[in-house]
Nucleic acid binder design. Structure first.
Length: 402
RNA sequence: GCAGGGUUAGUGAAGCGGUCAAACACAGCAGACUGUAAAUCUGCCCUCUACGAGUUCGGAGGUUCGAAUCCUCCACCCUGCA
C-alpha cells in the first residue's frame, strides 16, 4: 500500500443508496469526490492545454500505460521527470494498465466495451484478431507499426511506475459480453493471478526505488454481467492490500447500477472506488448512487471533437445547419470559457471549415459540463438533495429525446 | 479557315452498345460515438403518390430489340497548323 495515498469519507447518504462524498489525497494534490477524471490517454487531454484542463475544474488526469509504452516509451517519460513534468500537469494523475487494449485490440474489438449490449456495433469496422491472451500475459501487435509486443502484469507495473502517476491500475483481462460464462471464469482467475503479481512487482519496485514509492495501486473488478462472478472477485480482491478499486469490464448499460452495487457490497467500504469509462449522465447518477467515487471517460472530448455538445436537454450536434446563424452560446448560463466567449454560429463555422479551434472549444465545453454535473452531484449529496437533483436533472436531459 | 480533343448528376471526374439513375472524390444533409488505433465512422445525396415509377449524361435528329456509349447536323470550349 502507498504511504502517500489516503481516502476519507465526508458525507454518506444512506437510505438505500451508497452515495457519498470524500477526499482522495495524493502526492500531487487532493480530489474531492465524487469526481470526474479527465482522460489524457497519450499524456494529453486531446485539444486542450493543461491550463484549459484546470479551467474546466478537472481535478485529475488519467493517462494510459499501453499507449505511452508504445509511444514515446515509458523510459522517456521517466527521464523527463515523470508524467506530471512531461505533460505539464501538476495535479493528481492516474494511469490505466493497458489491460483494456488486450481486448480492444483482440477479437472482440468494440463489442466488449459496447455498453448498449451490441446495438451500436454495426458501425465499427471489423478488424482481425491482433492480441492473444495466455496465463502469463498478452502478446499483441502495435497498432502503430505492427511490431510484436508482450505485456505481463510485471511489465505493466514497471511501465506505470516509470510513468509515475499517483494512482495506477493492476493489469487485468477485460472480457466481452460475448465470451461464454466458462471463459469469464478463466479470465477472472487470470485477473486474480495477475493482481497478486502486480502487488508483488510493486513491492519490488518500491523497494528498489526508495525515492519513488508514492504511487497507489487499484485493482480492477471484472466479471462481466454475472452477479456471482462480480461478488466473488470483489470479495477476493477486496481482501488484498490494494489502495482502491476500479470497476471495469463488459456491462449491459441497463445493469450498470446493479453491477456496481454487487461489487461495492463486497468491496471494503472505506476504499475509493473508480468506475472505468463512463460519462453518460444517467450512468454517472447510477454509479454515484451505488458508491462510486471517481470515474473517467473519453466521451466528452471525443464526442466534442466530432461535433456533439452537451446541454441540459441532451446532446446536440453543432454541425447541423440549424446553427449556421445561431448567435447564442452552446448553452445558456454555462460558466465555461467557450460559452462565455463564443457563439454556436462561430463554432459551427469552425467545424464546417475544419478549423482546429473548434475541437478545443467543444472539448472545453463538454468537459466542463460533465465535471460540473459531478460537482453539482457532490454538492447535492452534502446538502441532502441527491435524489431531487437526480430526478429533475435526468427528467430534463432525457425527456426531449423521446 | 484546316486538323484533333472535349461537353456526364451541386463541383471535379469515371463510364465508351445491354449487368447505368450512372463508379469515385469533394461539397451538402442527417446520425453515432462510454478504461481514445476515433479532427473518426455510418447512412442519405435526379424527381415522385417512393421495397415501385418517372425523367437524365450540351441541343436536335438518326441507327439499333436496346444508346451516356455508334452516326449526322448545331452550339460552346480547348489544343495544334495557318
Amino acid at each position: 500500500m502507498s504511504k502517500a495515498f489516503s481516502f476519507s469519507i465526508t458525507t454518506k447518504i444512506g437510505g438505500g443508496t451508497l452515495a457519498r462524498t470524500g477526499t482522495i489525497t495524493t502526492p500531487h494534490g487532493t480530489i474531492q469526490t465524487p469526481a470526474f477524471i479527465v482522460v489524457g490517454t497519450k499524456a494529453t487531454v486531446k485539444a486542450m492545454t493543461p491550463e484549459m484542463v484546470r479551467g474546466v475544474h478537472a481535478q485529475a488526469v488519467l493517462a494510459n500505460a499501453y499507449h505511452l509504452y508504445l509511444q514515446p516509451g515509458h523510459k522517456l517519460i521517466e527521464n523527463a521527470g515523470g508524467l506530471h513534468s512531461f505533460m505539464n500537469w501538476q495535479g493528481p494523475t492516474f494511469t490505466d494498465s493497458g489491460g483494456f487494449q488486450v481486448l480492444s485490440l483482440g477479437s472482440g474489438f468494440k463489442k466488449v466495451i459496447d455498453m448498449t449490449g451490441g446495438t451500436t456495433v454495426q458501425n465499427t469496422p471489423k478488424r482481425e484478431r491482433r492480441a492473444f491472451v495466455d496465463d502469463d500475459g498478452v502478446t499483441f501487435y502495435s497498432h502503430i507499426d505492427g511490431n510484436k509486443h508482450r505485456f505481463t502484469p510485471e511489465l505493466s507495473m514497471q511501465i506505470q511506475h516509470a510513468i509515475g502517476a499517483d494512482i495506477m491500475f493492476a493489469f487485468d483481462e477485460l472480457t466481452s459480453l460475448q465470451d461464454p460464462y466458462d471463459y469469464q471464469i478463466d479470465a477472472l482467475q487470470r485477473t486474480h493471478d495477475w493482481a497478486d503479481r502486480c502487488l508483488a512487482e510493486m513491492d519490488e519496485l518500491r523497494t528498489s526505488h526508495p525515492g519513488r514509492d508514492y504511487q497507489a495501486l487499484f485493482a480492477v473488478i471484472q466479471g462481466a454481467q454475472y452477479e456471482d462472478l462480480r461478488r466473488k472477485t470483489s470479495k477476493h480482491l477486496g481482501q488484498l492490500p490494494f489502495d482502491g478499486y476500479g470497476i471495469g469490464g463488459a456491462i449491459e448499460k441497463e445493469k450498470i447500477g446493479d453491477i456496481i452495487r454487487w461489487c461495492n457490497e463486497e468491496l471494503p467500504y472505506d476504499k475509493p472506488k473508480h468506475m472505468l469509462g463512463i460519462s453518460e449522465p444517467n450512468d454517472i447518477f447510477a454509479a454515484i448512487e451505488q458508491g462510486i467515487d471517481t470515474f473517467d471517460c473519453v466521451s466528452p472530448t471525443r464526442v466534442g471533437r466530432n461535433g456533439a455538445f452537451y446541454t441540459y436537454e441532451g446532446r446536440k450536434n453543432i454541425k447541423g445547419s440549424r446553427y449556421y446563424d445561431d448567435f447564442q452560446p452552446l448553452l445558456d448560463d454555462c460558466n465555461c470559457y467557450t460559452c462565455k466567449n463564443y457563439t454556436r454560429a462561430y463554432i459551427h463555422h469552425l467545424f464546417k471549415a475544419k478549423e482546429i479551434l473548434g475541437l478545443t472549444l467543444m472539448s472545453i465545453h463538454n468537459e466542463n459540463f460533465i465535471i460540473k454535473l459531478v460537482d453539482d452531484i457532490r454538492t447535492s449529496i452534502e446538502a441532502g438533495s441527491f435524489n431531487e437533483l437526480r430526478n429533475n436533472w435526468l427528467h430534463q436531459y432525457y425527456s426531449d429525446k423521446n
